[in-house]
Design a protein around this nucleic acid. Structure first.
Length: 227
DNA sequence: ACCCAGGGCGTTG
DNA sequence: CAACGCCATGGG
């Protein structure tokens, strides 16, 4: 069985088990960016509170957020942990967003995706996962997002090394999957859902619809076309 | 009281 | 390039 078939079988199983996750949880593409920064190393629940607070005072509007002081933002996003740093990160992004794209997500999304990735990575406070989340879920670019769950779960499946870097893990998925943006979108969402529910820290999860038995991949559902 | 959550950066060895 | 410390909330 090729690696590509294994990955698709895993994805098919997750899709059957949990249904389309239709990510990212946000009302606008701009909100996706804020969420991507705010969710760094914190549970999504904490981010929801922060986003809610920003919304209350109309700061989900890019123009207003851009003109806002860091000291105004920080207390509103307190629930997101590391709130002082994150307020700065948001500000750093907004400065870039306005200086390079006049605050237009449409313009930013027209940028060549590998160039945009390079530019976003230069913003202090935005690392690979945050940038790739923005590229995929806000700008609609075909990049595969890797997070702690991805490494944990897929190294447990024996498909990647435990010590695999972000880049190595990402390359593994890109190389072994059809370059389908909808697939990239939902696959990552499924992985997070799996990580959030039954595959937390246990070495073996009894409820998992995907198992490794004698080194072989056993899925609850067969491979099927997802188109 | 503990533990950990959808990271990233700066500093050291 | 590791392996750390730092940031510093909230829910289980």
């Amino acid at each position: 069985m090729t690696t590509e078939r294994k990955l698709l079988k895993i994805y098919t199983t997750l899709l059957r088990e949990y249904g389309q996750r239709n990510w990212w949880p946000a009302e606008t593409s701009f909100e996706v960016i804020l969420g991507a920064i705010l969710t760094q190393n914190v549970s999504w629940k904490n981010v929801e509170t922060a986003i809610h607070n920003l919304k209350e005072v109309n700061l989900l509007d890019p123009e207003k957020l851009y003109r806002c002081e860091i000291d105004t933002i920080a207390p509103l996003i307190k629930s997101s942990r590391y709130y002082n740093q994150k307020a700065k990160k948001i500000k750093n992004f907004m400065d870039f967003f306005y200086s390079d794209y006049h605050g237009s997500l449409e313009k930013m999304s027209l940028e060549d995706h590998s160039l945009l990735r390079t530019k976003l990575l230069k913003i202090k406070g935005l690392g690979e996962e945050t940038v790739d989340s923005i590229l995929l879920y806000s700008c609609n670019k075909p990049v595969f997002v890797v997070d702690a769950y991805t490494k944990r779960i897929f190294s447990r499946f024996g498909l990647i090394e435990e010590t695999a870097t972000y880049g190595e893990t990402q390359h593994f998925f890109i190389k072994n999957l059809p370059q389908d943006i909808v697939l990239f979108n939902d696959f990552h969402a499924q992985i997070v859902h799996l990580g959030n529910t039954i595959c937390k820290t246990q070495p073996q999860c009894n409820q998992c619809p995907i198992r490794i038995i004698d080194g072989k991949l056993k899925c609850r559902y067969p491979l099927e076309n997802h188109s």
